[in-house]
Design a protein around this nucleic acid. Structure first.
Lengths: 192, 192, 192, 192
DNA sequence: ATTTAAGCGAGACGGTACGTCTCGTCTTGAA
DNA sequence: TTCAAGACGAGACGTACCGTCTCGCTTAAAT
């Protein structure tokens, strides 16, 4: 058994919060490209070393700041049918991305994940997989009910749902209207 | 009529090609994060100013290098039916992204488009919209034929198709298998 | 016999004047450090090559501009005595350097002569030696008259006179008052 | 009383020395025009920022390097008479400028002082005034003794002495021979 | 109580690339 | 041949951050 109580000063929760807050404020003010560790340290009144000690990159700070405020595991209670479950999930997901600040951070993190492969691994594990798993719960539930149409296959459902969401966020950049939720539900449940 | 003959030395096509080649080679060797204007100038045997004179950022150089080799307006001949047209388009699109080098560049450009808004505008106009228009031709053709199912709507077709492709490229990072083409065709044409 | 009439276009006197004028104006506006061949070409409406064709450096342009306006060989008529000659020479010399613009150019040229040895050679030949020779005429005249004191030696007279002037221009930067002319004349003529 | 202990890492004396040495070596090798901050950083194995943090220009680095090796306040002990004091001062001054390396640096600094006014202020305060003050001590001593001739006035003595030295360094560029020391002493002390 | 071992804010360090500026040369088409 | 225009290879400028390294201090568990 490892002695968990190490000697020395404890990590400062105050500094941690100050850094997360500074990161969120700065990215809103100067954009992700203008965000720097140096700037975060200055704004938060901490030292650069304190940031480097706990986070590997500026993207990881943002990821933690995001996780702090938005629970990514939004559980979907059983709504009775696959269609109802799906509609609930989509509505909740779109609500998550309705705040421009969150969208901006998501765009930046997805971008960083492409450019910095190590962060990519962490971003997939810490964000993308969690969202995918949340959807997986619904699909499994539907499968158990025998509610699932033959096309698309369960594995493809996530690709279509998240593909559409991310494509709108990253490429077309206009918000998803509610009509599209109905359209998607219809398409995926095989209803007419 | 404007006199087209401007005074002064002409732009060097030789240097332009050397820069595009150097950019493509370097991004393959050191990755997008390791790519720099400085490095491109050194590798291509040109001066930094020559690059800054013609391109606003390293991403724009890559975009031009990409456009140079891959025609983005791949025309889809009439295959007789919506389903056949769609299958041809998807097959051609996946083939485009089969070469890892092209995928790597696309990931980088989509990332840069998130981080650098000015480049984002150019990337959408110079790449995303062209691909979307190419798909639009098929859909219009199907609509003229009365071949189009009520769901999804034409505008959503592109979101689903490109959403799925980009999501796999950016998020899951595993290649699309051919079964998924069939699945997608079935889903979008409303066939059973 | 060389055919003096060479083929091709003649040198443009207009451009030459425009360049000299631009150089003089610019050095007054932005200082010698801010003066550039590029700026001179832009201001004068000429091409850089035209400047490089006729002058080896920006300092040479300034030197020619200076020579254009101030005759450096101010002849000193025989005033009857060494003391009177000397006083006339000093008065004329100080007058030359009374205009701040000329002083500024002289400072810059003397500086450039230290930094750029090739220009140093030209500056000495084109400016310093001419001034020294002008003083030499007086001294020779005095020697012929037997008017010269044993100390300082003729060669040292120039060192003292020009040394004092340049030291004030370069180091102390305050103008020479007329009392110092008398002082210098007294000192050099051995009068009491 | 201000607490002198400032936070943060201390300035590296090792780097400071390495930079001063590199500056001195480089100016000897490539001349002042060829000297660059970039080159000094490379040669000294430091970063450019470290130089910019402590010195405003390459000339200031050289000035400090010069002050490091040559004490500019060479005190002149009382030699008994104004003439003897003066001879000692001149001999010491000429010795200072006998090493070609020192001369080369002085030429460069005086040049830079003309071109860069801010450095000019620092050069006068950090070098010229100190030398002038050293001479002032002798003159004051002579005045106290009643040893001073009416011409030249004390203020002009410095102009003549340093004028001659600098004129030879900057303009004629040939070394001062010892005869000229005697000549100068004779002239300034009013002896025959 | 004293020692030891972090963590902290601060800031200097060796680096790298940025985007700009100017250099001196070369190329173009008109005069 | 010269000229105005302007692209070119080259390379230094001064700045911004990177990620690392002292530094004096605070904090807390172990001695």
């Amino acid at each position: 058994m490892i002695p968990v109580t190490r000697p020395g000063r404890k990590r400062s929760e105050e500094s941690r919060q100050a850094i997360l807050t500074a990161a969120a404020e700065l990215v809103a003010e100067v954009g992700y490209a203008g965000l720097s560790i140096e700037g975060m340290a200055a704004r938060s009144g901490t030292g650069k070393q304190t940031i480097y000690r706990w986070w590997p990159s500026k993207a990881d700070v943002l990821l933690e700041a995001l996780a702090e405020k938005a629970d990514l595991h939004i559980p979907i209670p059983d709504e009775g049918s696959y269609a109802a479950d799906l509609r609930a999930f989509l509505t909740a997901s779109f609500a998550l991305g309705r705040t421009p600040q969150v969208i901006a951070v998501l765009r930046a993190l997805m971008a960083e994940a492409q450019i910095n492969p190590e962060f990519g691994v962490r971003f997939r594990a810490g964000f993308l997989h969690r969202r995918r798993d949340a959807l997986g719960v619904l699909v499994d539930r539907a499968r158990a009910r025998g509610d699932l149409p033959p096309v698309p296959r369960p594995a493809t459902v996530a690709d279509l749902v998240f593909g559409l969401i991310w494509y709108r966020v990253l490429a077309t950049r206009d918000p998803i209207d509610d009509d599209q939720i109905d359209e998607l539900v219809t398409l995926l449940t095989g209803a007419d």
